[in-house]
Design a binder for these strands. Structure first.
Lengths: 193, 193
DNA sequence: GTCTATATTTAGATAGAC
DNA sequence: GTCTATCTAAATATAGAC
C-alpha cells in the first residue's frame, strides 16, 4: 500500500527528517510530519528509532562520522597544513552547496537543545583532529605560535561564518566562489611572516 | 499577592524569558515556565505580549536596538577601522561574559525558527553598518580590497566563533583573555602589508 | 493590569492486528 | 517490520472576574 522501498525505510526516514529539520527546524517538525513526508507509518518510525530524539541522534552520529572520515582522508591525502586546511575548507563549502541540509544540521543546529548530553560537534572527533593538527604545525614551525583555540577560530571562523550566512539565506553567492579568497585571508592570520 | 514590582512586570517577564531561553532554548521553555519563574500570572504575559512569539520579538528588537546603538557609538568614539573593530570586538566579548543570555540570544539562537519573517540579525542595522564601514575603509586604502562579505567574515568570524564556543561551554577561558590575540589575527586578514 | 480557571489543539508515544 | 487507531500529557491561548 505505502510507497515501496527504493531505499530501505530507516534511511528514507532519516533523509526526510533531515530535510524537514532543515526547512523548519527540529521543534517545528512533528513525528507526524516526518511520517507523512516519508510516506511511512508512524509505527515504523518508532520501531526503528524509539522516539523523536532517536532520529536526531542517528542523524547526528551518521553525519559526524561522515565528516570525521572526510577529515582523516584530507589529512592523509594532503601535505602541510596550508593545503590540508584549504582542502577542508573546500570540502565544507562544497557540502554546504550540495548537501545544505546536512551541513546546516552539523554546523548550525542547536544540538544541545534537542539532544541533551550529546557532545558538541565542535568538541568531537573531526574538530579535535584539526586542532591537534594545528598544534603540530605550530611545533613544527609551519605557522606562528598562538593559542590553539584562537588559531582554530582564526583559520576556520571566517569560513564557518560564511557557511552560516549562506545557509540562512543572507549570502546569495555560491560559496565555491569564495573559497580562494577566504582561505587566503585565513592563512594570513597564522602565516609566519 | 504575587511578587511586588521592583521592576515593572513587562521587563521582568522579558528578563526571565531571556534567561530561560538561554538555559533551555525557546522551544523547551513554555509560557507556564516563564510565568512561574517570573512570578507573574499567565494572563499578564498574554496581556502584554499577545503570544509567546511576542515575547521573543520584543526581546529581539530590544537587544538588536541596544547593539545598534553600541555600534554607532563605537564608530563615533574611535578613529580608523583598526580601533573601531577592536572596540567592537571588546564590546562583544565583554557582553558575552557579563550578559551571556543576551549575547546568546542575539548571536546563537535560530531566530528564523521561532520568529518567521524576522530579518536575520546579520543583515540588520548593526552588522550592515559594520560592513558599510569596511567598504569605506577599502575605498580609503586603509585595508586591502576584498569582497566585502568575505572581509567581514574574516574580520569578525573568528571572534564570533569563539563566542559560540564560549557560550556553548566548549571554551572555558574568559573571552576577555582572548581579545588582543584574536584581533591581531583578524587584522592580518585585511591589513595592507 | 492582573489574576484564576478553563478550553482547544496537537504533540509524542503506545497497543495490538497483520 | 509495518500498519492503523488510540491514548495521554502538555502547550498555547482565552474568558471573564476583580
Amino acid at each position: 500500500m505505502k510507497n515501496q522501498t527504493t531505499k530501505d525505510r530507516p534511511q528514507r526516514i532519516l533523509d526526510t527528517a533531515l530535510l524537514l529539520f532543515y526547512n523548519s527546524g527540529y521543534f517545528n517538525t512533528s513525528v507526524h510530519d516526518i511520517q507523512h513526508a516519508a510516506d511511512v507509518s508512524i509505527g515504523s518510525i518508532y520501531h526503528h528509532f524509539g522516539n523523536k530524539q532517536g532520529i536526531a541522534r542517528a542523524l547526528y552520529h551518521h553525519l559526524a562520522d561522515q565528516m570525521t572520515e572526510a577529515v582523516f582522508q584530507i589529512m592523509a591525502e594532503n601535505a602541510g597544513l596550508y593545503r590540508q586546511g584549504r582542502a577542508f575548507l573546500d570540502y565544507l563549502f562544497a557540502m554546504a552547496e550540495t548537501a545544505p541540509a546536512a551541513m546546516h544540521y552539523i554546523l548550525c543546529a542547536r544540538h544541545q537543545e534537542f539532544m541533551p548530553g550529546e557532545k558538541s560537534i565542535c568538541s568531537s572527533k573531526p574538530f579535535e583532529r584539526i586542532q591537534q593538527r594545528i598544534r603540530q604545525a605550530m611545533d613544527q614551525g609551519e605557522i606562528r605560535k598562538l593559542d590553539p583555540a584562537i588559531a582554530s577560530a582564526a583559520l576556520f571562523g571566517g569560513a564557518i561564518r560564511l557557511i552560516h550566512l549562506r545557509l540562512d539565506g543572507v549570502l546569495d553567492r555560491p560559496l565555491s566562489d569564495c573559497a580562494a579568497e577566504t582561505w587566503q585571508c585565513a592563512w594570513r592570520c597564522v602565516a609566519l611572516q
